[in-house]
Amino acid sequence: MPDISTNAKPTWCPGCFNFQILAGVKNALSRKISTHNAKKEDFALVSGIGCHAKIFDYINLNGVNTLHGRVLPTCLGIKVGNPNLEVIGFSGDGDAYAEGMEHLIHAARYNADIKYIVHNNQVFALTVGQPTPTTELGYKDKTNPLGVKLMPINPIKMMLNAGASFVARVFADAKQVEWVLEEALEHKGFAFIEVIQPCIIFHPDIGVKEKTYMLQENRHFKENLGDALKKAEEFDYNTINKIPLGIFYQKERETFEEKWPQLKSLIGRKASWKDIKR
């Protein structure tokens, strides 16, 4: 398999679960390159701002480390610029669910062929421990000494309602990440993947992993939106009871880039706007 590492030395904390995500992503992408005759140039990676974003520095593929919250419009712009690229976005939970929420809802609606991985550690880690929209009630830090008073959002439920054509959640384990990204790469359309990732410094695993189970091992029919919504309700990001993992929902429909004749023509000719001579 081709080596897609950079020379940059990772600056995540020793033992950080981001190493698991990085390994899973690198394995999935390397395999895609080696077995599907894909070239490194066929990929574009986009990351936001926060601990997750450093992943851009450790994978030697083209793309951009963009602004906080703006991963999805940047991904969309890349896809419009060259609809033949395999575009993969990375965000943290602050990035995806706080600053970038408006884009997330619309990305699900647009259904551009973009794979989107949210590293959800339920905390703003790089700014040293403030709560995000998925932090549980009562969580305290220096900026919230009275404790979190608002219920977290349920991103899986939200994405299902917003019309995402692929909705999955895994734990930050290299094997799970690799598996789900491979599945997503085979999916044509917007693939939302949430990775439940403990932050070993500010939001350690308080029994999440033990409560997880795999949907695909429990007769889950991923084509059924109603079933997916029911499963999404099993974990509200506040109380740890049962945490289903795997692909909640997957159903392909026409993609964003298939709807515009200009982009359809670029796909047909395997060209980008850059190739259009005027």
Binding site: V64, V80, N82, L85
Partner: peptide
């Protein structure tokens, strides 16, 4: 043969334009 896309806001518009620009599009 160019493309005009209305997005969910100005922030999305300029960031998408940046995305296209880095692929080599004008």
């Amino acid at each position: 043969n160019h493309i005009v896309i209305e997005l969910e806001g100005e922030i999305a518009a300029i960031n998408a334009a940046i995305g296209s620009a880095i692929t080599g599009a004008k």
